[in-house]
Design a binder for these strands. Structure first.
Length: 151
DNA sequence: GCCAACGTTGGC
DNA sequence: GCCAACGTTGGC
């Protein structure tokens, strides 16, 4: 059982979109980074992730999601009309994969500044200097510490 | 809008 | 395999 952090720009897809889709699953398409893709392929159904708002006025943890479906080929890579289209991805050997997630809960926002202030969270991969990965692993200790901030 | 940091691309 | 150029991320 592993824990994760998944970033989303709220302008594109926010915690409130997940609230509106409560009970449904949401396809985490559009990841175009190999390391982040590999993490998604490691994910198992039922594992949980911190849902993080990035590139916005108030970056931080906004909720908790769980993995609802194992990684499967990202349909947008084959759609020429999609901004995520990848002409070089072979249909019989897709480059890009995505899991599906579902909302566990929308939490109080845990601002980036608060995350940096907590020594128990300062170790998070996503907070490391220069890290830009949209999907990163979270240790059980970090997970516990993060949940405290959401209450 | 700026800019540091990083990943990817492509010529050699 | 190297590495410069380029594009992207994401906080500020």
């Amino acid at each position: 059982m592993r824990y994760w952090l998944m970033k989303s720009e709220p302008d594109e897809f926010s915690i409130d979109d997940l609230v509106r889709a409560r009970g449904q699953t949401t396809s985490w398409f559009g990841v175009r980074n190999y390391q982040a893709r590999n993490y998604m392929r490691d994910m198992k159904v039922g594992e949980r992730a911190l849902f993080y708002h990035s590139s916005c006025p108030e970056p931080g943890i906004a909720g908790i999601v769980e993995i609802a479906k194992l990684a499967h080929p990202d349909v947008t890579q084959f759609d020429p009309k999609s901004p995520y289209y990848d002409a070089k991805s072979p249909r019989d050997n897709p480059r890009w994969w995505n899991v599906d997630v579902r909302l566990v809960e929308k939490t109080r926002l845990v601002p980036l500044a608060a995350m940096r202030e907590d020594p128990a969270l300062a170790t998070m991969v996503t907070l490391r200097r220069g890290n830009r990965l949209s999907i990163t692993p979270v240790t059980p200790e970090e997970w516990k510490a993060a949940l405290k901030h959401t209450r």
